[in-house]
Structures are given as structure tokens and as C-alpha cells.
Amino acid sequence: MKQIINIMVAFLLVVPSMAQPTANDLLKKIDQNLSSKNRVFESEMTIHGKRASRTVVSKTYSVGDKQAFTEYLSPAREQGTKMLKLENQLWIYSPSTDRTIQISGHMLRQSVMGSDLSYEDMMDDRKLTEIYDGQVLRTETLDDRTCYVVELIANVSDVAYHKRLMWVDAERFVPLKEELYAKSGQLLKQTVMSEVLKIQGRWFPTKMVYKDMLKQGDGTEFKVLNASFDQDIPDYLFTKAALKQ
């Protein structure tokens, strides 16, 4: 989830530009634009299972890219479950067992809450500009919006996805669609973003549908219920002790 937020947040752009910008410019502008001290948002994730769909509501506090704390609010089974990410470590606290469990190694490759996302997808907190070289390929119309199609090719080897294609709204500078590719060029995953709203002066896509393209199924739907920036978040939230409270 965090990764989605990262992506989303990374691509919010307020300053419109008339000339076609370079991809790196785009990425940098997105970064600059979104550099808030911290963010707090409540979100709703709907997982379309083979048989039934489930909706999980959570509240996330994050500072920069390195620290994040998520508390699950519903459904009842998940309520009170907390997740803490510090740098590249991840802990989950479950109230029913009163246990703090470190998620590491192979466990990171497991799916989060049965969604099409893995813990690992949430862990990569490097900026896109650091690990990808970008290039604006063309402009295209997507859902009646003019978009820049940005191609990102990894410039480091330890990334999950070698290539990304991103459709960035040319006016509001919000990503509307992203495709993740394997090294071979095979399309693996697709994210479609919509319902772009203005929050605290920023354009914010509040709905994303995340889908594993190789698998049958309807994917995972992610909805931001409310978001706020530059809040007072107490430091102790980002400690293991906070998990148990």
C-alpha cells in the first residue's frame, strides 16, 4: 500500500507546464511538489477474491519514505492490527495474539491481506528518480485527459520491475495509469488511477485498481477516504513500543 502511496504522492504535480517536459523533470517536479513533512490518510482496500470481496480500512501515518505506521480499523478481525516500517524492516502487531512479528526474508514476498500486492512492494522506498531513467515517449488521450506517456527503465539491478510505463495527466500532472513490466518486456501488473481530487491544494488520485495481469481475477481496489499533510505526528508512533498500544 505504501508503495502505491509513494507512487501516487510522487506524481502529484501542481505546476502546469506548457512545453513537453523531460521525464526527469516530471519526476523531480512531482517529488518537489509532494515534499510535505508528513502525511496521514485513511484508506479503503477492496480485494476481489475468487469467491467474495473484502474491504479493509486502515489509517496510515508516514514521514518521508522511511517511516510508516499503519493501523487497521476494520473489519473486526483486522481491527487493531498495526504495521510498522522503519527503513527496511517491517513488524506487524496482532492484538488477538499480543505478538509483534517481524516480516522478513521470504515472508516479504507474500501477499498483503490477500491482495495483489506483496509486502515487498511496500518496502522499496527509494525514489523513482534514483532507480529509474525516464523518457517521455508521446502524448496520448486516456479517459478524455491528455497524458504524457513516460517510460522508466531501471538503472540499478535490484528492483522488482525493470520497466514502468506511466500515463501522466498533462494538465494536472497526476499519474492515471501505470504498467509494470518484466525484463523481457512482458506486462506483469497494471495500476489504474482515477477520481482525482484536490486536497490541500494538491491533485490527488483517490482511487487505484491494482491488477496482476497474468492471473485471472479482478485485482485489488484502493481508495483514499481522506488525506492530510504536514500534521503533528508524535515520534513515538514510529517505535516498536507503539505497536502494542
Binding site: G49, V56, E78, S96, T97, R99, S111, G114
Partner: peptide, 16 residues
């Protein structure tokens, strides 16, 4: 011990 698994509906499950 704690069992970490996923529920039949795909949720996370923890059980002591």
C-alpha cells in the same frame, strides 16, 4: 507459538 496465515477470505491471521 504463533501461526501466521491468511484467512479463507484472504485476510491476515494470527493465532497463538
Amino acid at each position: 507459538i504463533t501461526l501466521i496465515g491468511s484467512t479463507m477470505y484472504g485476510g491476515m491471521s494470527y493465532y497463538n
